[in-house]
């Protein structure tokens, strides 16, 4: 019954699917499917740190969620802002010595500089080198529209994220 043994071994490995980290950041409560975009936007692969990606976990609040763990790196304020823009529901845990040293919810900044690309092809920011600025406006809880400082158009989050993914 070789197959059963394999299943038993796999079960033993289950605790390892999310292992504890000594120092770093755990981004929790990411809506399922958004972790990959987040990893890309935060440019985590470039930091040369171990990044663990968990997709489609069961959420206590119902539904599914993603989790991202970054070892040996605490997110900067700018990075926290980036998390807030993409996943306003996220919780950020700062881990020191295997313990949660700090835990906070990502907070949407009043203005977002540089990070976003305007989806309007006729916006001046797409024609010349201009640092972009966007103003988030809450539509509902944790759901935002983003207004471009230059062309003044409002974009829903999906369009903004699609542009980030195209970058």
């Amino acid at each position: 019954m070789k197959k059963d043994i394999k299943i038993e071994e796999m079960k033993k490995l289950r605790p390892f699917r999310v292992f504890a980290i000594e120092r770093g950041t755990v981004i929790d409560h990411i809506p399922a499917g958004k972790a990959l975009t987040l990893v890309k936007v935060l440019k985590l692969p470039a930091h040369n740190k171990i990044v663990t990606l968990g997709l489609n976990f069961k959420s206590k609040k119902g539904g599914q969620k993603d989790i991202v763990k970054v070892e040996g790196k605490e997110l900067s304020q700018e990075e926290v802002n980036q998390v807030a823009i993409l996943v306003p529901t996220a919780t950020i845990n700062i881990i020191r010595n295997y313990k949660v040293a700090d835990k906070f919810k990502a907070k949407m900044p009043k203005m977002i500089e540089k990070l976003l690309v305007c989806p309007n092809p006729n916006c001046i920011t797409r024609q010349e080198e201009v640092i972009t600025k966007f103003y988030p406006a809450a539509k509902k809880k944790d759901e935002y529209d983003f207004r471009c400082h230059y062309c003044e158009r409002n974009f829903p989050e999906e369009e903004i994220i699609a542009e980030i993914n195209n970058k």
Partner: peptide, 9 residues
């Protein structure tokens, strides 16, 4: 100007 946001810029 034909480009949107050009006046602000």
């Amino acid at each position: 100007h034909p480009v949107e946001g050009s006046a602000r810029r």
